[in-house]
């Protein structure tokens, strides 16, 4: 009986979901799960109140080798936030779609050193992002290549 209830919820939600999904914003191409070139994490980008945000949803090494506990944001400049779990941490914030496959005005956070950088994202193709974090001027920055991840196709 419970399964039928769940099924009806999913069907209802699914109908609503698919009927809305055909009219997606051009900027929504950013939405999805992405992997940086170092393959140490997977970042899910979603849209909240019209802006794009990315959170860490998977870590290759989720356990801190020193504490033997799940990794936290130990380098956060605010001492009181050093125990925020790294899994779920929003490292991309406040991106606004500017058109022509570019999202700007956002920031990227590097948990390895606790620094927040200005950031611009360019869609190289549907499944590849050029993400440039920089300090003030784009010259003082570095570009990484992120690849889109999708659900495994059933064989």
């Amino acid at each position: 009986m419970k399964k039928f209830k769940i099924l009806s919820i999913i069907l209802g939600g699914l109908f609503l979901f698919t009927s809305m999904s055909y009219k997606t914003d051009e900027g929504d191409k950013l939405i999805g799960v992405w992997e940086p070139s170092n393959k140490k994490a997977k970042i899910k980008i979603d849209k909240i109140s019209g802006k794009y945000y990315g959170k860490i949803v998977w870590l290759r090494e989720p356990i801190d080798p020193v504490t033997k506990k799940p990794k936290t944001d130990k380098n956060n400049p605010d001492e009181s936030l050093k125990n925020v779990p790294l899994k779920g941490f929003r490292m991309l914030k406040d991106f606004v779609y500017k058109g022509d496959g570019e999202w700007a005005d956002g920031t990227i956070y590097d948990p390895q050193n606790g620094s927040t950088y200005n950031c611009v994202i360019k869609l190289r193709d549907d499944n590849t992002l050029d993400i440039r974090g920089y300090i003030g001027l784009k010259t003082f920055g570095r570009t990484d290549v992120w690849k889109r991840l999708v659900m495994k196709k059933k064989k």
């Binding site: 909240i48 109140s49 019209g50 802006k51 945000y53 605010d78 936030l81 125990n83 925020v84 779990p85 779920g88 941490f89 929003r90 914030k93 406040d94 920031t107």
Partner: peptide
Amino acid sequence: SFTVLLASPNTSMKECGF
């Protein structure tokens, strides 16, 4: 775990606590 954040259209999203 929970992480609580606040955002607004013209500011940056910030962590309030966890």
